[in-house]
Design a protein around this nucleic acid. Structure first.
Lengths: 177, 177
DNA sequence: CTCTGCATGTAAAAGGTTACATGATTCC
DNA sequence: GGAATCATGTAACCTTTTACATGCAGAG
């Protein structure tokens, strides 16, 4: 449902006009952690949104370098608000490490902590990047909700890291049981 | 990479032979929370795995009802173990509620707690189902790692529920800031 | 002059869901 | 007899990734 990418774009355009390239860059530095997007989605979607009348594109080249900036139309703003108010789809999670852990009975017990450690390393990396964002981007009182989402990400991955650490310790000690 | 569904099937077949229908049923009651699968993936994949020599299928009808049970071959067991030891891909998360929260500046402040509450409701539902599983399935000492994954899910969604509750309280009180 | 970043795009492949068709069996 | 569950399958569709092609601009 809802197609996702559509509202990622409309949402980002709230704050001003952007090129497809801009959208990609911003997504990679923010929503990527809970909603990714590729060029193969962005450019075609921008044209679809323009056809729908939800955005307008104006060509604003930089010298001889082509550049098309898109901005929300009133209809686009309305569509965005309607989506914001509609019930959201449930969370989708896909975690290969968890899948491995689930099937890890097929492995000698000593190799179990390694699987957990790999999972922890993954979240530690994300955590580091989120903290970087937190320091780089000074809190804008106008963007409470974006800060909230960032805090969620940090708490969330922090929880995972702690959980993994606890399991690693437990598995290392009580080897048998 | 890795195609995922391939190892979901191989992993489930560790414990004995299963039909495609069985695989679907088990996935829907377990791995679905971190790795889903549909019939459209399962049946074709079973035939591919048989062609690869990783599973063997034997027709074992129940009366006049057709039924094909698959079991791991030694090569299948080996492929599974190799995958278990290989580094896992990072976590993929997709959460529409979080996306809405991210763009919620476009909404009057009073509507923000509602978005968080919807997110909480989602995790509460999952949590209830995970706890049900925990009670239904008595701990099998032979399947430590499956219990671990279940505990992860419960802790994980529990964390989300608590976070949402905290934010809801904060947003309700400190309305302006 | 070279490297990085800006900028647009697409074709093919891969991955996945939905919806349907079909029919037997078991439980009430 | 009817409903739920067992059981297999696929075709159409949708979404998403990957990989490539192209070229200007600015910094060093």
């Amino acid at each position: 449902m809802t197609t996702g990418i559509k509202f990622v774009i409309l949402g980002l355009l709230q704050k001003g006009s952007l090129s497809g390239y801009d959208v990609k860059r911003i997504v990679d530095g923010s929503t990527r952690f809970f909603w990714a997007a590729s060029y193969g989605q962005i450019y075609p979607e921008l044209r679809r949104l323009e056809a729908e009348g939800l955005v307008t594109g104006t060509s604003e080249p930089h010298g001889a370098r082509a550049r098309k900036l898109y901005r929300l139309t009133p209809a686009g703003r309305k569509a965005l608000r309607a989506w914001l108010r509609a019930p959201a789809a449930g969370m989708e999670l896909r975690n290969e490490a968890l899948l491995k852990l689930f099937f890890a009975d097929g492995l000698p017990r000593e190799e179990l902590p390694g699987v957990v450690a790999a999972m922890r390393a993954d979240s530690e990396e994300v955590l580091a990047r989120l903290r970087e964002i937190q320091e780089r981007v000074r809190p804008d009182p106008d963007e409470t909700s974006k800060g909230l989402v960032l805090e969620f990400g940090i708490g969330f991955h922090g929880w995972i890291v702690n959980w993994c650490r606890a399991q690693e310790a437990r598995l290392a000690k009580g080897g048998s049981k």
